[in-house]
Each structure stands twice: as C-alpha cells, then as structure tokens.
Amino acid sequence: MDSSVEPTRQLIRLRGRSYVAFVFTPVVPIVGWLEEIDATLARSPDFFVGKPVVLDLSAVDLSQSAVVHLVKSIEQRNIRVLGFEGVDAAHLDASMPPLLTGGRHCAPQLAVAEKRETKPQLTSLLLDSPVRSGQSVIFTEGDVTVLGSVGSGAEIVAGGSIHVYGTLRGRAMAGVNGNSSARIYCQSIEAELIAIDGYYQTAEELDADLRSRPAQARLDGKIMRITPLN
C-alpha cells in the first residue's frame, strides 16, 4: 500500500489592502530638493522614521543612473523608498523598488493624529464656589452650573442654560449664541437681570410673588416666561 501522503495543497489567499504613504515629488535641481529634505530632518530628525515614501518622478526626466543615485541619496538619509510613480518601467531594474499605480490623494495622516491630541471641547462649566459681585463668568460653549449664589453685581453669560444652586442676585444671560431654547434655573430668584437669546427682563419687571422662590426662566417666542419650580 502506498503510504505516501498526498500533500494538501496550501491555498494562497489574496487580499487587497491599502496603505497611506508619503509621496515625494522631486524637482530640479535635485541637489536643492535634497537640501529641503535635510532642512526638514534638521527640525525633526524622527519625522520620516517608520514612514516609507513613494517617489513620484513625473515632474522630472531622469536617466536610469540618475534614478539609482536619487534612491541611494534618499536611503542615506534613513528614508525607505517603497516604490515609484510616474517613471518609465524600463528605467527600473529588479534591484529597485517596484512601480506603483492607482494611488489616490488623501489627507496627511499627521494632521489627523494632531487633532486627536486636543481635548474634546467642554460643553458645560461647573463652578463650585459663589460668584462674587464684580466677577464675570463668560462661557459661550454651553451650560454653566453654579453651586452657590451669584452675588449682586456679578454676571454669568452662557451659550446654553444657566443653573444656580443658590440665590441668583446678579445678572444671568443664557443662550447668547442665539440659542432660544436655553433656560435659567435658580434656587431663589432675586436677579437684577435675566436674558435669554437677547430678550431680557430687569428686576423691576420681575413678578413680586416670584421673588426669593425657586424659579425657571424660558423663552416663549418673544416672551420671557418665569415660572416657580415646584
């Protein structure tokens, strides 16, 4: 009996995958262009580490020896050449990186990485001490919450709503960016002025029954509605 085992054939799986690479577009004179690369490296020596590049030679007309010399010059600067674009295939021999086609433009990855480092924008501001007379808190990005009172002569300006867990004696201006659905809440209303999206009411116009009570202010069309909470 034939004991030899028929080798199972290994299937080659072919998958497509795309990568983002830097594309260098050398221009004449090549010496001047290489100096530019050196200047970049002087500023940040690790800039090209782990980032292979593609050479786009469509802007220059180089002989085969010139292409070989260029690749050497670049590799001397510790930059790996991944492939070529825009060059006659006849100029490249087997020892050189291959010719690439079908590349598409994309935004440089670096910019994306930098954006991720910035903190996500805050949408609310929390103040855990009283806001004193003469202080002005301006936060146009969103809501302001105060754990304490807002003194007479103090001012809170918010892009969103304002919450005061204390007595509101100063001015409160909510929805300053045109947000008419912003509201103002406080534990005790003795405000000098209340405004939402530019529509305001002064202390004089405030209903006397509401004074020193927990209240909510909202905008109903062009009318300021101040209603007691509970």
Binding site: S129, R132, S133, G134, Q135, G151, S152, G153, A154
Partner: peptide, 17 residues
C-alpha cells in the same frame, strides 16, 4: 446695609483671585 454688603462681596471675590 446693602451697599456695604455688596462691596464686601466684591472684595471677597478679589481676595479669592
């Protein structure tokens, strides 16, 4: 009196900042 109290509030704010 109210004017003195409000001025004190202002000064406390400055002491804190």
């Amino acid at each position: 009196e109210v004017s003195s109290v409000r001025d004190s509030d202002r000064i406390i704010g400055m002491l804190d900042s």
